[in-house]
Write a protein that binds this DNA or RNA. Structure first.
Lengths: 339, 339
DNA sequence: TTGTAGGCGTTATCAA
DNA sequence: TTGATAACGCCTACAA
């Protein structure tokens, strides 16, 4: 089924057929409707490869999921990917997905391959790193991209930033009001902007609320629940352990709660725990997890919308969208007196 | 960066360069290493569009996630997609992902577009329907595909089938041994093979275990936790409500547990609940959910491996892989005496 | 062992 | 308003 067959059947030139189908103005109405009808009847769909080759674009965007363990995946990503996928459809884009361990050679390999082979027109990033090779590479190679976080590499791009200052102030105030004053922080890899940013806001919020920042109460994990588990065990074993733990994301929070229960303590009463993300299971965990909720699905949509504009060279209303996430208090921060 | 530039730089013809890079035997060793070295230096990557056009394949496979609610997504899919993605990489394939509401026009639209535009070489399906237009269409159009379930359309394809006979026998035996004898079933849409199959095995297992099959204890939902919630409320409101509920998947099970708690009953003691899938949060829910665990990540990998072979026209050792899933007993089926 | 040339299906330029 | 024709970058008979 090619344009040529339609042309032959109608006794037209392929040029005319092509133009009729692409909606060019210089085609008579009669010809256009005829061509459109025939194309539909014959079940014609333009060959993607030929289009890509000729138009020099693929109408496809890419996203690489940072893979961690073989089997499980942070639900953050399912929500994020769902958001990307749906927004891609509405922007008439396809979504190419791959997965690779963060910050490793394979990962750059995939980016490079996608970019150089012109498989994609743009890329969505998240978990941006402080010195992010991907950002540098994409920028240097002129490949449109957007990201969920800002960068410290002095490179500008359309992005969504989820603030956490207010939320952390509220959270720490809330936790302190319950009487918990040794508030620990389980973060992620130091290379992540996310870690840099949330950690600094955690420290600020401690001070603002008249608490003391104790470096012994900070452990860095890798954003998985098992790392939350391990980190918490470590925190519980120090001489003067914390009575509250703020986790950089919900997954870490699940692991933390697990470790606390296993130590025979009661989450919420003996030790408060909070997460970040607002993934669905945070509401159904044992106990339900206090978290800072960010609209992951919508964020993904915003990113794709911006990326689509960027690709088409259209102006983007807001190059930098900032969002205020929502503190959701649940039973993991009940307080010693319980509800 | 094209093959032509390399050729010009080395004073060779593009043919030779092409053949050297593609590992054809009829190139002198000297030329080959020279070309390879230069290509690497110049950062050459073959243009995907040109390749696709010429080779008439895209080295890309597709998967469409059935979208339900706007925001949340069954973790089954994150695990499945992660498995697809990783296996795609190892098979040197790209993975194109989209999402569409199951069994609706948009969905077929995407399949048709992908197939006819030759964007993909193969497709992975799951949640196969009893009269599945996708299966019929793909088969009719000669597009390689694999699926997680069998089909009743008389069409054969490489697939993975997760048996449930033994698991359901064990599960119902276990539940009955706790004294629960009115065992309900919350299923999915009637059109799904999954529903047809699991439901029939549920019925068989009831009989085998000397229990009575009561149609009033069967409700069909849509595999989401909210449908599990609603279905359970309905079951609890009938004159002679069940004291155990077997859910077609874990998500439904979460909703069921939620509804039971909300009704002031204790999950596990008053009413037993079981799911199917073995998704991660089933272990961390309140209470942890008894489930039939299937290796979703590995299944996805097997499907991609089969699909890759099918695409290349290579023989597939086993056109039909059957797996025996694993019953995992947790506190949601503690029993009235419970610990 | 290397080169010439044609074509994959579209789109874009130019002329009619 | 329409048509002939030349690319896009790669692969592959076929010829040298």
């Amino acid at each position: 089924m090619t344009i040529r067959e339609i042309a032959k059947k109608l006794g037209l030139s392929i040029t005319t057929v092509s133009r009729a189908l692409d909606g060019y103005p210089d085609v008579s109405q009669k010809t256009r409707t005829l061509v459109e009808k025939t194309a539909k009847e014959m079940g014609y769909t333009p060959n993607q490869a030929a289009r890509m080759l000729r138009r020099k674009r693929s109408d496809t965007i890419g996203y690489i999921i940072p893979s961690t363990r073989p089997r499980f995946m942070d639900p953050f990503y399912s929500e994020f990917v769902a958001g990307l996928g749906d927004a891609a459809v509405t922007n008439a884009l396809d979504l190419l997905v791959s997965s690779a361990p963060a910050d490793q050679a394979v990962e750059m390999q995939i980016y490079r391959n996608w970019v150089q082979s012109r498989k994609i027109d743009g890329i969505v990033l998240n978990r941006v790193r402080i010195q992010d090779k991907r950002v540098q590479y994409l920028f240097a190679n002129n490949m449109p991209f957007v990201a969920l976080e800002f960068s410290k590499d002095g490179i500008d791009y359309p992005r969504v930033e989820v603030l956490c200052e207010t939320a952390y102030q509220q959270l720490i105030k809330h936790i302190a009001s319950l009487g918990f004053r040794r508030i620990a922080f389980i973060g992620g890899p130091e290379a992540l902007i996310l870690q840099f940013y949330r950690f600094s806001k955690y420290k600020e919020a401690l001070i603002t609320n008249g608490l003391i920042y104790d470096p012994n109460l900070v452990v860095l994990g890798d954003l998985t629940s098992s790392s939350g588990f391990e980190s918490t065990k470590r925190l519980l074993s120090i001489p003067d352990p914390p009575n509250a733990i703020i986790c950089i994301n919900d997954e870490t929070g699940f692991g933390a709660m697990h470790a606390i229960s296993e130590a025979g303590l009661i989450v919420g009463k003996d030790i408060a725990v909070a997460g970040f993300d607002g993934i669905q299971n945070a509401a159904f965990s044992q106990p339900p997890l206090t978290t800072i909720d960010q609209p992951v699905y919508q964020i993904a949509g915003m990113l794709v919308d911006m990326l689509a504009k960027k690709i088409k060279g259209q102006p983007i209303q807001q190059e930098k969208i900032t969002l205020e996430p929502n503190l959701i208090i649940r039973e993991s921060t009940t307080g010693p007196m319980g509800k």
